[in-house]
Design a protein around this nucleic acid. Structure first.
Lengths: 345, 345
DNA sequence: CTGAAAGCGCTTACAG
DNA sequence: CTGAAAGCGCTTACAG
């Protein structure tokens, strides 16, 4: 019933091979036979079967994007960057939500392997470096986007989180804060660890000793930000400013602060990280460190395509480090134009 | 190099057919041969090739989700619902952003046809009913999620937008408003038209005549909401309340209101539609009509799978209408507990 | 319960 | 410039 290359061949009076050639733009074909084939293709409404093609070419032109949860506002931007770039090269993207759970991730990997995707972009990874190298051995290209994995010899694109953490903290220091809290992401995650590092560097550059009690462990969720900030605020000497390792946690932190009847930024200043869309809302105006999310996705996609179309197994892993950029809005209190934060209450 | 079913067959001393049978859980196989095959599968690290399988079975177990832009916060929730349900049935989801542009949509359709996806979920459609029926003739199942298309004889799941619009408007009326504006979506889009209808019904039920000057045409974007609300606010007799056809536009409307130095809800009350995540943020507290987005996706996915796995071409189109639910927060002014809105300034 | 064979719809050397 | 043939890796009647 459905029309195949055979039908087109018959109708245009040539062989399947020739049809295949014109459809794949292999330039040898004579112009008039080319036209005849195209005409037959149109007339029959022929749609090539990508499965059959893939079976012989070993290419599917589809790529997987692994995220923890697309509902996390960080990821849609990344996904869009990925897809837009992929489209330019005629690739499709398969969406994989893992909730950061290793079993889900594994299940997906298995599935993706079966479906013969050409490559994977991990915007979230739970596997260890060793599992990833298994992928490499299987010959499945991948790139890490927004995460690094110690020991993984893989293509990576990330923002410079150390620098970003430094900028955020430095800004608060310049506004006069000396007790600055940090609400981290999950332990061991590079983005969180690096931002912590930048935070400590900034403190030290200002002659301050990082104090462990000012660091609360979060998890990149709003609830985590709420809990982390709550802990910091109930300190005997609470911080006058809090740097949150991402914006969602900053939102949670805002909740915690308001709940105590405190004001932002008058009582507590807040700086986040990522610049997710609602950070700029008039009623939020979150000061934060811009993560070029769309670019992250687009660059990751480009790197992946490069790997796919030019497979040199011994090629060195490429690392792209994007610059962070501090975006000053209201929650840091910059507009207050003073340098005695927390002293006004 | 890569291991195929043939290798497994050889190693376990059976035919490819038998290997296929155990891998597909066809119960006829004797237990010990079954075990031998499984053992060989594991030992060789065999991964079935879904392309080859698909080529013979005519099933890919992948489904496409078409959205206008995943960065629109409405869609990630839908996508998650789709994916979660699909996963239960061992399907994958391909993400397709069209920006609501017909060329992009067409290009994707063509691609999806080539890739032999088993079905499509349209959370956004630009094609006309006639193009969709072409899909039907091609035998490609699809369902419309959140949109209806007049004349399209297709499976559909939507929220009752007439009722939702009615609830939103009725609520404002009960708070004492009599001049209520409406910022619509794009002309012709069912969600917008229906909400408008509900809005007018509510007005009439209260003996009010809908006034055309109180309706501004928007487009479901923040900018559209800003522009629409701006127009309403510069009326000689501006409305004291505005119902926006979706939450993003409500955000834009808030901007417009604040920009004029007006207060929400004291000067202008606002009600949105969708209940996207940030509507509930402490600093926003948008009163809105809940759209069960996750369920929308999950139900659409279930309907699609049903169509796919049980293809009766003459089966009647199914319509699922979800109930909307008014969520009262702050922007409507309910908490003010009075009934003379707009009269306090 | 199992196997041999055909077939799914392409692409790609190989010849000419 | 074009075609015949093999092959990609599965599944599925059909026989036995």
């Amino acid at each position: 019933m459905p029309v195949t290359i055979k039908d087109v061949a018959r109708r245009s009076g040539v062989s399947k091979a020739t049809v295949s050639r014109v459809l794949n733009n292999i330039p040898v074909v004579r112009e008039d036979t080319r036209r005849a084939v195209l005409e037959a293709t149109r007339a029959l409404g022929y749609t090539p079967d990508a499965l059959a093609r893939g079976l012989t070419t070993k290419k599917t032109r589809t790529v997987a994007l692994v995220v923890s949860d697309i509902r996390n506002p960080f990821f849609p931007e990344v996904a869009r960057g990925v897809e837009d770039l992929l489209n330019n090269y005629n690739y499709n993207v398969m969406l994989c939500n893992t909730d950061g759970r290793p079993e889900k991730e594994e299940a997906y990997i298995r599935l993706l392997l079966e479906k013969r995707v050409d490559g994977i972009i991990f915007a979230s990874v739970k596997m260890g470096a060793s599992d990833l190298s298994r992928l490499q051995k299987r010959g499945l290209p991948f790139v890490l986007a927004g995460r690094t994995l110690p020991g993984a010899d893989a293509d990576v694109v990330v923002v410079d989180s150390v620098l970003g953490g430094y900028q955020a903290t430095m800004h608060l220091l310049q506004l006069g804060h000396t007790r600055i809290g940090y609400v981290s992401g999950p332990a061991g995650v590079s983005a969180s660890v690096d931002r912590h590092r930048g935070y400590e560097q900034a403190l030290r550059h200002n002659g301050l000793d990082p104090s462990p009690e000012l660091v609360a462990v979060g998890d990149f969720t709003q609830e985590g930000g709420y809990a982390g900030a709550s802990r910091l605020l109930s300190l005997e000497k609470p911080p006058t400013a809090i740097f949150c390792a991402n914006d969602i946690m900053a939102i949670g932190a805002l909740e915690a602060i308001y709940e105590r009847g405190l004001k932002v930024p008058e009582d507590v200043a807040i700086v986040g990280f990522d610049d997710i869309p609602f950070a700029r809302l008039r009623n939020i105006q979150l000061t934060t460190v811009m993560y070029p999310k769309y670019d992250l996705g687009a660059i990751a996609a480009r790197m992946l395509i490069e790997r796919i179309e030019n497979p040199a197994p011994d090629r060195l892993a490429k690392q792209v480090i994007l610059p962070p950029r501090l975006i000053i809005r209201r929650t840091c209190g910059f507009h207050l134009g003073r340098s005695t934060p927390g002293a006004t209450t």
